[in-house]
Structure formats: C-alpha cells, structure tokens
Amino acid sequence: MFEAIKHNMETIAGVAIYPIISLLIFFFFFVALGYWVFSYKREKIMELSNLPLNDNQNDHPLNSEK
C-alpha cells in the first residue's frame, strides 16, 4: 500500500547514515547525563533543592508595614 510514497527518501544519497548518527548521539548523550547526575555530592544536591524554600522575605521588616 505504501509503494507510492515509500521510496521518497531512498533516493537521497547516504540516507542510511541518519539512523546510525541518531543512535550514537543518543547513546553518548545519556551516558554523559548519567555521569553528570551521579557525580554530584549529596550536600550540593540538598543545597540546590532547597533554593525555592530559603527566601524568607516575608520576615523582612519593610514588609510588615501594612
């Protein structure tokens, strides 16, 4: 059924390299990502994940005027 449209790409020279390049990019991307993430120190992770919580501006004296 697909005969009419299937060959659109096969005429492009060297199109077979696309899936191979894609696979390689993917593999190395995730290996690097995994390495980054697990090379973090526990304390650093704690510090970073607490960033949204340590703004105590509501205690600021200028904010209690009203």
Binding site: L33, V37, M46, S49, P52, L53
Partner: peptide
C-alpha cells in the same frame, strides 16, 4: 511545578538529580 509544588508543600523537590535528568532528556 518545580517551584510552586515545593513552596506549597513546604519541602524540597523529591529528587533534584531526577529533575536534572528530567530536564535534559
């Protein structure tokens, strides 16, 4: 979500490592 859920629950995100993987992937 990564800002307001921790704020509303008043606790840090479950896993910051996971959030890094989440973002990039």
């Amino acid at each position: 979500m990564y800002y307001f859920v921790p704020k509303a629950a008043n606790r840090p995100v479950y896993s910051y490592r996971l959030s890094i993987v989440h973002f990039w992937s």
